[in-house]
Amino acid sequence: MTVFNQLLSNELPVQPMMPGSVSSSVTCCPFFPRVVLLQVMLLGDSAVGKTCVLVRFKDGAFLGGNFIATVGIDFRNKVVDVDNLKVKLQIWDTAGQERFRSVTHAYYRDAQALLLLYDITNKPSFDNIRAWLTEIHEYAQRDVVIMLLGNKSDMAAERVVKMEDGEKLAKEYGVPFMETSAKTGGNVELAFLAIAKELKHRATQQPNEPKFKIHDYIESQKQKSGCCSLG
């Protein structure tokens, strides 16, 4: 019937779909509900908070204290519920350092979604976003879902990148945008869930079903982070 139903009947763990479509895959397990596998990758300069965002999402905790640089890439799983369907997110946390770039490149093409982070208190990390987007266009799948995140929104006093600048850049590239805080948890869950929803809809969309609009969804859900301090 639909692509999704074809997939459900297929027990292969990784099944590439028709060209141009999202290559998400589905495994069937007799004891658990059907699970959709999605690969998500966190990208951005060193020390923008990629690992912290991931830990906040995965364990609901904040990695305070010392900065621990990720070595190479780090792979973790988290199962989330999207509209009563289990979605297993396989999340690649990458090292921001330049010397790991070649390893990161090798795993770009497997990712269906990319979370691209900058640090709102660090201008160079924002300026590098264009370079990151160029790299993404070179290595990632053509229809990859990209989301731009301005992290550390709790640190209002040290902010150097305005929220409007982030919005403007995101608009220019046509990608959804929000500001997150791994420390308070603001918008972190939403970022991952919006991506999971988008990909799930792409994989399971019925012909007559209305298209999932990730931009609208985010706008309706997101907390205007730091609204009190921004004024």
Binding site: V55, G72, I73, D74, R76, D93, V103
Partner: peptide
Amino acid sequence: SSFREGEGWTP
């Protein structure tokens, strides 16, 4: 400590 949680992959 970055290898503690997930699976690390590094050159």
